[in-house]
Structures are given as C-alpha cells and as structure tokens.
Design a protein around this nucleic acid. Sequence first.
RNA 1: GCCCGAGUGGCGGAACUGGUAGACGCACAGGACUUAAAAUCCUGAGGUCGCAAGGCCGUGCCGGUUCGAGUCCGGCCUCGGGCACCA
Length: 825
Amino acid sequence: MSEQISRYEPHHIEEKWQNIWEGKKVFTVTEDSAKEKYYLLEMFPYPSGKIHMGHVRNYSIGDIIARFQRMRGFNVLHPMGWDSFGMPAENAAIQHGTHPAKWTRENISYMKAQLKKMGLSYDWTREAATCSPDYYKWNQWLFLKMYEKGLAYKKKSYVNWCPKCETVLANEQVIDGICWRCDTSVEKRDLEQWFLKITNYAEELLDDLDKLKGWPERVGTMQRNWIGKSIGAEIDFPVDNSQDKIKVFTTRPDTLYGATFMSIAPEHPMVEKLVANNQQRAVREFLEKIKKQDRRSQAEAFIEKEGVWTGSYCINPLTNKKIPIYIANFVLMEYGTGAVMAVPTHDQRDFEFAKKYNLSMEIVIQPKDKKLDARTMTEAYVDDGILVNSEKFNGMDNKDAVAAIVKHLEEKGIAKKSISYKLKDWGISRQRYWGCPIPLIYCDSCGTVPVPYEKLPVILPEDVEFTGEGGSPLAKSSEFIKTRCHWCGSNSAKRETDTMDTFIDSSWYFLRYTSPLENSLPFNKDKARYWMPVDQYIGGIEHAVLHLLYSRFFTKVIRDIGLVTIDEPFTNLLTQGMVIKDGAKMSKSKGNVVDPDDLIKKYGADTARLFSLFAAPPEKDLEWSDESVDGSYRFLNRVWRLVEECRVQGFKGSRVQGGKDEETNLKYPLWQEMNKTIKKVTDDIERFHFNTAIAALMEYLNFLYKYEDKGSPLFKDAVETLIVLLSPFAPHISEELWQMMGNKEMLANREWPSYDEKALIKEEATLVVQINGKVRNRINIPAGSSQKEAEEIASNDEKIKEWLKDKKIKKVIYVQDKILNVVVG
RNA sequence: GCCCGAGUGGCGGAACUGGUAGACGCACAGGACUUAAAAUCCUGAGGUCGCAAGGCCGUGCCGGUUCGAGUCCGGCCUCGGGCACCA
C-alpha cells in the first residue's frame, strides 16, 4: 500500500507521446480502397513567425474531428503545410536585411515545432510549402494551361499604385487612400496586368452554391452577393447627329420611356468623341477633379453625385426624344457597359443627379395605392406599378413590361437580353519579389511567349537586392530578366517580372496534399480521385469570398483540364470564430495577445486544446479567460487523480461491455450513465458541439467521483470509457492513463466505443404536471405510462389535488413520459 | 442605406424537431482537511416575497399564435459582421 499517487505532469507525458506517435507513424496514411476515406483539412497558415491563438483553436477543432473519424474506422487524410509566399517575408528583408527565403524557412521550422507540441495528428510526410519550387512549378504549369485555354490574359486596368514603393497594392493594403507601409497617398494607375477569367465560370460558381449543403448559409450568401448576377438588357441609344451609338445595360427596361438623359463613366472610351467644342474646358476640369478622388474613400463617404454635360445628345429609342449625355462620377466603367440610361423618377441616383442639374423627369410607373407627381416627389419610386406615358405599353404591369419592351426592341434590332455580374476577372500580377514568377517571356519578334512546360519551374532567383524602394527586386535583376526566346532563339527576350497573387498558391494546395511528391503533374490523378473532395474544411470566415471562391474556381478549371472529376473542392465547411480578449480581436497593436507558447508551457497542450473547445461553440467568437483555462486544467487533473486513485487501490476486475452479463449490467446506474455519456459525446462531436461534449465528460467524471463502489466489477470499464472518450480532445493524458491502466494497445488506434441502446431505456420517467401551462409538480411515474395511468397518478398527488380543488377540467394534454398539462376553467 | 448573425444569471455558455429555462465551467459563499495557506474534497446559489412550505416574476422590448414560446409569427431596440453609388 506504499505506492504513491503520481502527479499530472503534462510536459513529461506530452513529449513522450508525440515521439511515440511520430516514431510509429501512426498518422501516416496511404490510399486504401477497402476503407472509406475522410479528408479533413484546416486552412494552412502563413508562416509569420509564431502560431497564434486563432491557429490553436482552428487546429484543435480539426484534430478532434480527425482523431474521432479515425477511431471510427475512416481512412483519415489530415495534412498540413505552409502558405509561404507573401509580403511580410519581403518586408522582413527590407527592414532587417534577412532574405525572405531564410526568414520563411526559419519561421516554418519554428511553427512546425509549435504545431508538433500541440499533439496534432498530421501526416507530416505530406507537408507542402508553396514557396518551394517543387510546389510553385505547378502554379506555373496551371497558369500555362489557363493561358492555352484563353483563361489567362493581359489587359490594361486601373490599379492601386504607391508612387514611393513603385508597386501595385492590393485593395486591403490601402488604408484610407494611403499606403500601409510608407504613408504615401495611393494613386490609380492604368497598367497592363495579367488576369484570370474567373468570369467565365460566374454562372457555374453561382449555381453550384446550391449544391454546397454543408456550407454555412452566410458564406453562400456572401459569394452570391460578390458574384452579383443581374438580369436585364443591353439597349443601343443612337448618338444625335452621328453614326455612333451608346450601349447601356439596364435591369429596368420597363422604365425606358422615362429615360430623360444618359450618364457615362469618366473613363468611357467614347468620352472624347462626345465632347462638343464649347464643353471641352468644363469636361477637362471635371475629369481632372475626378482623377484626384479616391474611389474607395468615395464610396465610404458617400460623395455627392456630380457630373458634366458633354454637349452631345443621344436619342431615346422609344420616345425618339433628344436626351443629353452626361459624364457622371458615380458611373463605373467596370460594370455593365459603363453607360447608364438615366430614369430620374425611378432610380434614386438618377433622381439626385437630375435634381442637381435640373434635368427633366417623367413618371412612367404609377403605383397602385398613390399618385406620383414628378414636381413634388422627394425620392425616386423604385417599386412595382403600372406603366404610364409609355405609349402602347400603358396600363401594363411593369413586371410584364420588362419582357414586352425588350421583345419590341429586339425586333427592331437595337436590344438584347443580357446578364451582368459584379464579379470581375481576377488580377493576379504583383510587382513583388516573394511570389511565384509568371512563366512568360516577351520577345521582340515573337511577342508574348509561354515558357515551355519542360523548362518549368521558372526559379525565383535568390541573389537580389531588397531596398524597399524602386519597385520589385525582380524587375532589377538583369540576370533573371535576360533570357532566350524559345521560339526564335533570340537572346534579347525578356522575362515577365511580375509574380502571381499568393491566393493562387492556396487555390489548389488541397489537391497537392493527395500526392505531394508527384513530379509529372500537379498531383496524381488516381490519388486525387480517391481523396477528393475535402470532406470537412475548417477555417476563418474572413476567407468567405476570396480564398473559398478562388479555390472553387481553380477546381472547376482543373476539372476542365481533365485532372479531376469533381465540381466542388469542399463538401462541408466550418467557419470558426475569432479569439477575443478584452472585447477585441487579439492584436499586437492592442496589446491583448496571448502567446500559445506561454499557454502550453504553463498548462500543456491538452489544456490548451480543451480550453479552446470548451469555452465556446466553434463558429462563435471565443472570449479568452485565464480562469477558464484553469478550469480545463483542473478537469484534467481530476481525471488523472481518479484514475490514479483507482489504480493504486487496484481495480477488482473487468467486465466487458456487451458480454454475457449484459442483463445484469442493465441494472446498474453506472452502466446506464456510461452508455448515456458515450451516446452524448458521440452525437455532440458529430454535430461539432464540442463544448457540450466536454460538459458531458465533466458530468460523467463527477458521477464517477461520487460513485461509492469504486471497486465494483464495472468501474474499470467505466473509467476506461472516460479515457477513450476524452482522447480526441486531450490525446496525451488519455494515452498515458490508458497505458497506466495496463493497456498495451495504443489508444490512438483503438476503436471508438459504441453504446448499448438497452441501457438508455429508463424504467422511470419524471412527469411534469402543469395546471394551465404552469409547472405545479414533478412526479416519478413508470416509463411508458398511458395518459390514463398518468392522470390517475397525478390526480392522487396531494399538491395537484390542492390545485385542482373546485376547478372544472376543460382539457388534458399528455406527452408521454414528459408532460401532463391540465387546463381548468 | 442594404444583406446577414446575435441578444438567456456576476461571467463563458446549455436547452436536438415548441414541452422541467439556466446543464457544464468560471467567479462567489459556506463547510471539511491543514498550526496556517495553497491544493483538494463536499455543499449552496436567477430575481423577489416568506421563518418555512411555498408563491410571484424572469431568456433585449411590444404584441400575436398555442394547452404550453428562449424556440414559431409580426413590429421595434441594441450590438457584431459583410457589402456599399453594380444601373
């Protein structure tokens, strides 16, 4: 009896088990047609230096599911890698003189060690880093395939340009019109850039959202809004005294009779032609002014609608009236045709514009319940109604008029049905060094020439200079630029020096994981067929549109290239909430950051995992709490102590669940409690209610603590069940306790327990007796009692008798084993 | 402005299809152990009135449906997020 109860020392056991798992390759998987696959993926991190609490949460959630599904017999693919191209590496080079490659490599190795310390069940043999030539070679390969299919093209467009850094900036890198890095005012520049034709897939990307039943509704909504499909028509407006015509896009052809002027975008290609001599100066001044306005802050501040008359007119094709053509600051060249037929009575923007410039207004839609008057209206009427002032269409319901008017115009050959999208082609050129080179060369005689497939990858040169000024280091590396034309052999060809947007890297990495060593294609087709699609994808909501939309696009392109057969990459999506402290997202600037290193150092990985799952449901924000971490740690200590006490005292024996003594087992509340807990934890993990699964384990532990006969035959089973159920949440302590109980087999390889349905059947039920819907008493009744029996028992109850005294019973509602509601008058 | 999401004890959160509101945890209080503290173990607890038994009130607000509403419907309020001149 001298044996002491050992203490729970997380660090000791965590490192031990991490080494065992790794040494025995427990989580290394291969394709196995005999087993059902399960592909679980968490969004891979950018190697910024250290993992943060958001990562801890994301990867803890993923690991629960991976370990759980593994124990349930699935062949689980659970890989990890690095989204390792990007600006921070380059900034580190500029600020500290560290080469981006070195900085990134070091960060990866540090963060990988951190992830290993968390005990995550990754198959590290599949690790991929997007900055490695083995990986980005296939970015280039895919780009060339798209180029061949006409899906990659170059065009001039307006981009954010920082004159000091001499580079294009992404929208999110422009803060209030100012460069985030050097505080210089950002300009718009018309630059030649490479684009991917994501708009070719707009319709499919939109339609297939309906197939994604396992995605949160709001992500679908956000993508739907982003794609922004509008059905309408394109209508030609002849220019007065000219052969030209202006094409407009409208969703409201029914209001065409009310189009009393035309607005075109400042960048509209016809502007120059349309400006009359006497308006030259006014237009020039206006365009100068517009140029200075930043489009983004313009949107935020609701800048006043402004415009200038071109001096020209066009003809409304239905009224045949001359209507003035204006250049307006709110018309976007990027959307529709860059020209808008203005109906001030039925469009709020046109209304405001018309009021400002005193333009004529004509009502063409009258609502049924009131009478509009153009002279007195204070805002545009945009709802449905009956057509007026529209010649032969008068009296028609405006919804019917849409089709009727388009048909009429189509017959005249001046309109056609049209669909417009907000979604724009994806501009992927970056004047940045730390990214994947675009594999093209420019030859004086041959033009744009793709680098041949066999010459891939175009390697990013390492010996370049980082000054932070004068644009991309790549554009100054003559060694990189100078190349030979693969067609004509000319030695004066030049390489493209732009690199690809890093979102390209992450648009197909989930495919690379299926065969990370494949060297003849981006990935092995057979292996991808086995593993894809990803069954469960987990990551932050911030990628609702960008990454998730791009990945869907890439998957469809890759399908059309013939490498996969699936249409969608991610069957189920879980978007986890942020980690919050003191009411705000953790950030260095707010000084409210909790370092996972400190957390693990103090409590161990099991506590860190448990806390991040227990404190909130996964899709909600998680408020950090030191005390709550203590609580999780305390729980693990309690588990440890229970097992240790029992072990030191010696378990009396074991009875295997479902054995020949099943009938006897059923009599024990312990047996019932154990089975109830198995069911609860299993169901809760399945629906991602990890917090309540842990709560059930805590309740079960409390029950075991209070259980008097700890030496009883069933108790060992009951304790072992606790350990097994705990293992996906806190794998290290579970393995250790499992071993301490004398088990040889590794817990990670054990099957998830099933429960005995019979144990869940109760003999007694608590009947809630209500009088007029108010709870008046709770009575134990035999389970499965009929209404008659229940009424009989309730009517004999003293309290209920008292409540029913002198009352007339009007009605009785009975829900078996739950409620008896007596309605009295 | 438009589109989502959320409002439940002192706090994080439970309550699967309308059926015992507040599981579990934290913090708190009382007790046990200890010379003492920490740790641990046990107990208590939504508010309010009451010595008690027990009553009444209670899931952001107002109203409705229902025998019965945190849950469904209508109208607001507050907070969080996304989009933002998209013709």
